[in-house]
């Protein structure tokens, strides 16, 4: 039982003080320095910026960054968490041509 309680799907401590990006369920995407989180993964980012959304399709983000500062992210709306450095986007390999 204790083992189950100790289990964590991700070890966010590894990224403490590093730049991470978060994608949300509604298509928003932000990047910032990880400065805090709790057991349900509500996340605090410092010096965060949001990728502005394409006004014609809100699920598409543009490269333009809007500076926000300190941000608190709600766990229930977070979709993906990944470090800024060492990850890159690839083309969809399952897309039919």
């Amino acid at each position: 039982m204790s083992r189950r309680n100790d289990f964590k799907s991700i070890d966010l401590k590894r990224y403490f003080g590093k730049k991470i990006e978060i994608k949300f369920l509604d298509g928003r995407q932000i990047v910032g320095t990880l400065t805090g989180f709790d057991k349900v993964f509500n996340i605090v980012l410092e010096e965060a910026s949001e990728y502005s959304q394409d006004p014609s399709n809100f699920f598409q983000v543009t490269d333009k960054l809007v500076y926000l500062g300190l941000v608190v992210c709600k766990s229930s709306s977070i979709c993906v968490i990944f470090p800024s450095e060492g990850t890159e986007e690839i083309a969809n390999p399952f897309e039919k041509k």
Binding site: D26, L68, V71, V72, K74
Partner: peptide, 20 residues
Amino acid sequence: GQITFLVPFKNGPDEVLNKQ
């Protein structure tokens, strides 16, 4: 349930845009 994220101590999009 509707909230995605919060920006504390900020006065909304107008402030950010004006600053820029």
